[in-house]
């Protein structure tokens, strides 16, 4: 009873007002440095960063009101992929197309480039950013799943001005934090495999290092489900995959596929990835 009494008024129903033409007016700040962007964020109420803008525009067309938009486009150094010691840095503004074309990334994380050439569609790949994808972090998005498998960490500037490294699966909650980019540890060889054939019902990622493998399962969970797998050749791939499927947490409700099907597919797709990994197939 009490819960009902203090229940907040329902937001406008998305179907009640289906108009994609409407974007509420807002203030625009075109930041030239990360600090400038952070300061603008601290100074405004209801502000959002924008990168490619694809997700933000979509949200705004369905009613999201934003007071200030802070464009990150003009900040140097946030777009591109570089090697920093043992770590590969993917700038937050790097587009999906940049990733799909990067030689450097291909050299250090074989597999990544091929997977990224099929993410979303070409127009989105041209504009949509890796960082925007990580921050939006919808269940079926690929960047969180790929990054989680690779154990990547995000370099974040908090609104108060301090910097911190956060695991990618922790990104997105704090809208005032600015993501500069993501670091992938490449001190030992690593390859990335994925089975997206059932996307958006399920996708499975697998990062393979000489010292171990890590799988992530996306679409079925609010955040990618991460599992470290042993490199024990004596274990049958099917058994390992079945074990992972059986112990995965409860799936989200969806009208596309039942939880039972998704769980069963975890076993199938993961088994296939493990086989590809063992046979050194791309």
């Amino acid at each position: 009873m009490l819960a009902q009494a203090i229940h907040p008024p329902a937001p406008p129903h998305p179907i009640a007002m289906r108009s994609r033409k409407h974007i509420s007016p807002f203030n625009l700040v075109r930041a030239r440095t990360v600090d400038e962007a952070g300061q603008a964020m601290a100074a405004s109420r209801n502000a959002r960063y924008v990168a490619g803008g694809i997700d933000l525009i979509d949200l705004m067309k369905s009613g999201l009101e934003v007071g200030t938009i802070i464009s990150l486009d003009a900040i140097p150094g946030l777009r591109g992929i570089s090697l920093e010691g043992d770590r590969l840095f993917i700038g937050a503004l790097t587009t999906h197309a940049d990733i799909a074309e990067s030689e450097l990334l291909h050299r250090h994380v074989p597999g990544f480039r091929e997977i990224w050439a099929t993410v979303a569609n070409l127009r989105i790949r041209m504009v949509g950013t890796f960082g925007g994808n990580l921050i939006s972090a919808l269940p079926h998005y690929d960047a969180p799943a790929a990054c989680a498998a690779l154990g990547a960490v995000g370099r974040v500037r908090k609104a108060a001005g301090e910097y911190m490294d956060a695991p990618v699966t922790a990104l997105g909650g704090d809208k005032s934090a600015l993501l500069e980019g993501t670091f992938i540890d490449v001190h030992e060889p690593v390859r990335l495999l994925a089975d997206r054939s059932l996307h958006p019902v399920l996708s499975v990622y697998l990062a393979v290092r000489p010292t171990g493998m890590r799988a992530t399962i996306a679409c079925a969970f609010a955040r990618p489900h991460v599992i470290d797998l042993p490199l024990d050749a004596s274990l049958a791939q099917a058994d390992v995959a079945a074990e992972v499927a059986a112990s995965a947490p409860a799936m989200m409700e969806s009208s596309i596929a039942s939880a039972a099907y998704q769980r069963r597919m975890i076993a199938v797709l993961l088994k296939r990835l493990l086989k590809r990994a063992a046979e050194r197939q791309p």
Partner: peptide, 22 residues
Amino acid sequence: YVGDVVAAVCAVDENTAYRALQ
């Protein structure tokens, strides 16, 4: 049904009409 039309606004542009719906 969800989507049945209950009110229609006419305004100078689509944005204004949309804001009026709210």
